[in-house]
Nucleic acid binder design. Structure first.
Lengths: 145, 145
DNA sequence: CTATTTTTGTATGTACACATACTAAATAGA
DNA sequence: TCTATTTAGTATGTGTACATACAAAAATAG
């Protein structure tokens, strides 16, 4: 009857392409606004503003990354002067990570841009469709966020 | 009224986490079946079976990747003996990429596993919800696939 | 209090993912 | 035909993304 179940119809393929489109919009819009920040870096900064002094493992859990990836993301952000790390007195293994003034400043400037570009990730969907899609994704996601 | 629009409700974040879950299921299932192949590698092999002798740029376009990424994917597949590259007589810049017998063999063995794991990417959705979600993603995707 | 287990951060290695730039070759325009 | 543009593949560099393994420290079990 209908066409064979091809690769391009598979959930895994469609989801990857959607993520690709999402990252592409993020990069284009933020770059066009004069910023050089990845979406992971934004997520880290945003979370650090809401939970200052958090440790890297907790930060990783909050935004659903592994410790290793967050470690290198934080290292870059620190190198660029956007976050600072203080040794934790209570736990000598851990660091308390916080935004620097520059980090705060950058976040305030870039946040409206990031919020605005969210609509451009799914431009061909109606408002209703977008809500449906996001609701289904939330339902499909295993806990941890 | 409702909660502030937090990071964890943003389309970009939700889509990234869905892709994360998708890749995770792919890796777990294929590894559990004794294979060591990424989803990109599978996509390349699958496409090469349907379009033998295609060049790298066309392959990249078909599965929505850039030339550079496909170049290194093909290099690895060739190193592992799964694909072969022949210089194209008509276009001396290009290669005709094809599956080797091992590539064919591996693809036949892994394909049913990949098809089956697709349902496990979205295990908490009903059949109807899954269809809706995938339909919306297809609609949201810009052409090229 | 000691021994086991867990946890924090780092190091290493693999594999995307893509921007940019480059060479060689093909194509289009004049 | 001759030039300008486009295209195929590669090289380089940055930044995830994550598995695995490790040392130091903390938490737990006995």
């Amino acid at each position: 009857m209908s066409e064979e179940l091809g690769l391009r119809k598979l959930p895994g393929h469609l989801i990857r392409r959607l993520q690709q489109q999402s990252v592409s919009v993020f990069t284009e819009r933020t770059k066009a606004a004069g910023f050089d920040l990845t979406s992971v870096q934004f997520a880290a900064l945003d979370t650090l503003e809401k939970a200052p002094g958090i440790d890297q493992a907790s930060l990783a859990k909050r935004i659903a990354y592994d410790r290793a990836t967050i470690g290198s993301v934080i290292k870059r952000l620190e190198k660029n002067g956007l976050v600072s790390r203080l040794p934790d007195d209570k736990d000598r293994r851990a660091f308390q990570v916080s935004l620097t003034p520059q980090g705060h400043c950058l976040l305030e400037k870039i946040r409206p841009i990031v919020l605005e570009l969210q609509n451009d990730i799914l431009p061909d969907l109606t408002e209703t469709e977008r809500t449906t899609l996001l609701g289904l994704i939330e339902k499909a996601l295993k806990p941890a966020g």
